[in-house]
Design a protein around this nucleic acid. Structure first.
Lengths: 125, 125
DNA sequence: GGGAATATTCCC
DNA sequence: GGGAATATTCCC
């Protein structure tokens, strides 16, 4: 009677959501308004994100973890593609987590999800 | 021409120093003055360390790491027993560190030593 | 060497 | 679920 987990991310500044494009695309998701440069020609502004290294490693690793279609029986995107589901928490924790993180504890993974404001829904079959 | 490292701990509240007794003995190293109870019979005081779990895990793990005589060719106590020496940093990092810690980086180990105010002396053969 | 960001653990 | 302690990484 292993529970599965549905994990939903509602909103995050630099976009874990939406279409499952590769993590490198995060770098190009800025919030600059269209025609922003036409409004003024004043002093040069620092380019946002130029010295940033992209989204936090936890998010890119989690994305890669979910994205790998070879492990869809353990963890996969939801039908609507706006969440991901851990179908086999035991296998997920012991086998997949240590590949991407320095632990094999589901609770530590969830602690990080909470940090990044994921909503966790626990489903019991 | 691999350098070896001599690592000295000058003073730490709950005693990493002195005789290499097992880590559990740290629990009994308190700083209560002798005859402390004879000076007053006032209200009961909380017993220091009663609800503490002992020295930080980093210190006990480092102690165990150094104490294991099977790896004295890689890391061992110094002659004077007031420091320890990493004779083979490469082997130390790749083989021993991951057994006790979640990494294999000598620099991360040194960062922790610095946190606990160890003095690091780098020796080039 | 150590400040700071991020990760992991521990515990309420 | 999240605060806080500790660990690990990154970077000056």
């Amino acid at each position: 009677m292993d529970p599965s987990y549905r994990l939903i991310k509602e909103e995050f500044p630099t976009g874990f959501n939406d279409s499952p494009s590769p993590p490198s695309s995060y770098l190009y998701t800025t919030s600059m308004a269209p025609n922003d440069q036409t409004t003024t020609l004043s002093s040069p502004q620092p380019i946002e994100g130029l010295h940033e290294s992209g989204p936090p490693p936890f998010l890119t690793k989690t994305y890669d973890l979910v994205e790998d279609s070879r492990t869809n029986h353990v963890v996969s995107w939801s039908q609507a593609n706006n969440s991901f589901i851990v179908w086999d928490p035991q296998s997920f924790s012991m086998t997949l987590l240590p590949i991407f993180f320095k632990h094999n504890n589901f609770s530590s993974f969830v602690r990080q999800l909470n940090t990044y404001r994921f909503e966790i829904i626990r489903v019991v079959n």
